[in-house]
């Protein structure tokens, strides 16, 4: 069976853990997140008779006071940069996180996830804001952890390469 290590990165409060919760039924306590900075869940995805097992490394929220352990990115097949469309600042921070992650793992696919699309976007936010960065990412998803919109798509994309 194919296994893929997927990392969830992004500023604090953008909904990384909620996205994972929407997707899998975790067994580890979320205390792991605050203890060692990461919580791991797994999810098997099937398509056309082939199965891929995703090992989802949900990493602690990143801000100017708290970075992330670059070792957690080693061997990752893909990493999500998750931002919150209700906070423009999260996009700026997300791009900084992307740059750090890219240094730690130059080979992994990067996927941008704009979360909380069920809520109105900030007035500063428009999809054209993303255009300068889109070429850094293999794909961009607009999701809602609350409604589940495009959540499965983003994970299937990292599992099979296309949504």
């Amino acid at each position: 069976m194919i296994q893929k290590k997927i990392c969830m990165l992004g500023p604090t409060g953008v909904g990384k853990t909620s996205l994972v919760k929407q997707y899998v039924e975790g067994i580890f306590s979320e205390k792991y997140l605050t203890s060692i900075g990461v919580k791991i869940d797994k999810k098997q995805v099937e398509r056309n008779g082939s199965t891929v097992q995703l090992m989802l490394w949900d990493m602690e929220g990143i801000d100017r006071y708290c970075g992330f352990n670059p070792r957690y990115l080693r061997g990752a097949s893909s990493f999500f940069i998750i931002v919150d469309q209700t906070r423009y600042q999260s996009l700026v921070e997300g791009i900084e996180v992307y740059q750090l992650a890219r240094e730690a793992n130059p080979k992994a696919h990067a996927v941008l996830v704009v979360n909380k699309v069920d809520l109105p976007a900030t007035s500063h936010w428009s999809r054209s804001e993303l255009e300068p960065y889109e070429n850094h990412f293999a794909n961009v998803f607009y999701t809602s952890a609350k409604t589940g919109e495009s959540v499965e798509d983003m994970f299937e994309f990292v599992a099979f390469g296309e949504s």
């Binding site: 296994q3 893929k4 290590k5 067994i27 580890f28 792991y32 060692i36 990461v38 791991i40 869940d41 797994k42 097992q53 090992m55 490394w57 957690y72 080693r74 061997g75 990752a76 097949s77």
Partner: peptide, 28 residues
């Protein structure tokens, strides 16, 4: 590098821990 499980065996499969998650958590 990835923390993914390559191979595992257990004396009693019914009592074995979830090897995939255990592997990743150990590496983490």
């Amino acid at each position: 590098e990835t923390g993914t499980l390559l191979v595992s065996v257990a004396a009693d499969e019914s009592k074995a821990q979830d090897a995939d998650l255990l592997s990743s958590m150990l590496v983490a």
